[in-house]
Amino acid sequence: MEVFAEFLGRIDNLAHREKLEAVFDWIRSKFPQLTPKLAWNQPMFTDHGTFIIGFSAAKRHMAVALEKACMLRFANDIAQAGYESTKELVRIRWDSPLDYDLLEKMIAFNVADKADCDTFWRK
């Protein structure tokens, strides 16, 4: 994905880069209406100008950025998946499988919940 090429190119570990590329490709195929965007040096997907989901890469994990409303809605599912989390971030260790069903539910929730949102972040 061209918009994320520079970000991905800075990830030295090829396996980590490929895992993130696979996630981005999966999101594009499942949610073609979302717009890929690089903001604050992080890849993210937006819908009609509003934030849906973002990503970053660390040494031991990928981080999935979500707003508090989504984190609260899926707190139990995130914990059951074995992921660490903060109030707006899910950490998925590189050596852990990615729960695509959970990812799909979180993205779908944000798309539906923010359908009438006219700001980047929830108010």
Rank of each mutant, 00 (worst) to 15 (best):
E84M: 11
L103C: 01
K59V: 00
A39F: 04
R73Y: 13
K114G: 01
W121S: 05
A108F: 09
A5G: 05
F109V: 04
A112N: 05
F74C: 02
L98Q: 00
N41E: 13
D95R: 08
T86P: 05
I92T: 01
H16C: 10
R91K: 15
A63G: 10
D113G: 04
K123M: 10
F31T: 10
K123L: 12
L72G: 11
N76Q: 12
G54Y: 03
L72A: 14
D25C: 12
E18K: 11
D116H: 12
T119Q: 06
S29T: 14
D95S: 10
F120E: 05
T35G: 07
A79G: 08
G49Y: 06
E2S: 11
T50H: 14
W94C: 01
A69Y: 05
W40F: 13
Y83F: 05
L102V: 02
A81R: 00
I11E: 02
R17Y: 08
N13L: 14
C70E: 02
I52Y: 04
L72E: 14
N41A: 15
R28W: 13
Y83A: 02
F31Y: 15
E67C: 04
I78N: 00
E6R: 09
H48W: 02
E18C: 07
Q33N: 14
F51V: 00
D116R: 13
T119C: 08
E88A: 15
E6K: 10
L34D: 06
E6D: 11
R73T: 08
S85C: 09
D101Q: 08
A65N: 01
A5N: 07
T50P: 00
G54K: 02
A58H: 05
F24I: 02
A22L: 09
E88G: 15
L98Y: 02
A108S: 12
M1N: 06
P36S: 15
K114F: 11
V3M: 06
D95V: 06
M1A: 13
K68V: 09
Q42G: 03
P97G: 09
R122A: 14
G54E: 03
F74M: 03
G9N: 06
T35Y: 13
G9F: 06
F45P: 01
S85M: 07
T119K: 12
I92L: 05
M106V: 00
H48N: 11
I52Q: 04
P32V: 15
L66G: 01
A115I: 09
A65K: 02
